[in-house]
């Protein structure tokens, strides 16, 4: 009984806080406490979203495509780097600082460079997504590989297994959980990365839509697209959680 009660409360709490937030927003904007040209009311935002729905969806398709390809390449790259760094210790020592440095460079600063180098096509956008997404996955995979239990490794070795078998049976499956926590972070980065790169040049995508509505001072549309971007990020994170559940049947309750 108490347990059920707790689970209901834990589900209701975030919904209530969101509703309260929306209520405050509605009160502040509809009550003209903040002028409506600066803060549109949620009703206007929903109206703008419905009015521009088909346009938003076609831009979403482009942004999602960039995010998806970028994330896919980023994941593959992270996998290769993490495996090599785990296998060869000198590579770990040599590459780790470089990886950290790449993450200190602000995305927004390299985006224009990428546009100059690669033009207004999809290439610079995907590259930027790759750059922002591969790092969390690399680090989480490496952590996973390196936290393998030495006794388990010895066990496989005692069965006559070499490095590949150790990787296949111990390190790789042992890193799945960390991999997914890295992927979750990267999935949300991928959408934001794609949007930022679209700000700086291009003809399609949610970032392009954002710059257009900004120039038109269409605050309601700005808010609509911002909320859409965060909804997409949330959906992607949910998708990752779903994938994790499928990949890790042994973590599921009976």
């Amino acid at each position: 009984m108490t347990k059920k009660y707790q689970s209901i409360t834990s589900k209701i709490a975030p919904a209530v806080s969101l509703l309260v937030l929306a209520g405050v927003w509605l009160f502040v904007s509809e009550g003209e406490i903040v002028p409506s040209y600066m803060l549109p009311s949620p009703v206007d935002v929903v109206r703008a979203f419905v009015a521009d729905f088909s346009v938003l969806m076609s831009h979403t398709a482009v942004t999602l495509q960039e995010a998806f390809y970028g994330l896919l390449i980023g994941t593959a790259l992270a996998f290769v780097i993490a495996v090599l760094m785990d296998r060869f210790d000198f590579l770990y020592k040599a590459v780790y600082p470089i990886l950290v440095i790449t993450q200190t460079i602000p995305t927004i600063a390299i985006a224009p460079l990428l546009v100059l180098w690669m033009g207004f096509s999809m290439a610079p956008k995907i590259t930027l997504v790759v750059l922002t997404t591969f790092f969390p996955i690399t680090i989480s995979l490496l952590d996973g590989f390196r936290s393998a239990d030495p006794d388990s490794i010895n066990l496989v070795r005692s069965m006559g297994g070499g490095n590949f078998k150790i990787f296949r049976h111990i390190k790789l499956p042992g890193a799945v959980e960390q991999f997914f926590s890295g992927l979750k972070v990267s999935a949300s980065y991928s959408v934001v990365g794609a949007v930022i790169s679209e700000w700086l040049g291009g003809f399609e995508g949610l970032g392009v839509y954002m710059t257009r509505v900004k120039k038109a001072y269409a605050f309601d549309k700005m808010f609509a697209v911002i909320i859409l971007v965060s909804l997409i990020s949330l959906a992607l994170m949910g998708l990752v959680a779903l994938l994790k559940n499928i990949a890790m049947p042994y973590k599921r309750k009976k």
Binding site: D151, N154, L155, S158, G160, G161, H169, P173
Partner: peptide, 19 residues
């Protein structure tokens, strides 16, 4: 030379990700 004798420890070392 490892791989010649099988051993068992106090820790069962069953891999959590396998049945």
């Amino acid at each position: 030379k490892s791989g010649k004798m099988s051993y068992m420890l106090q820790k069962d070392l069953l891999l959590p990700h396998y049945t």
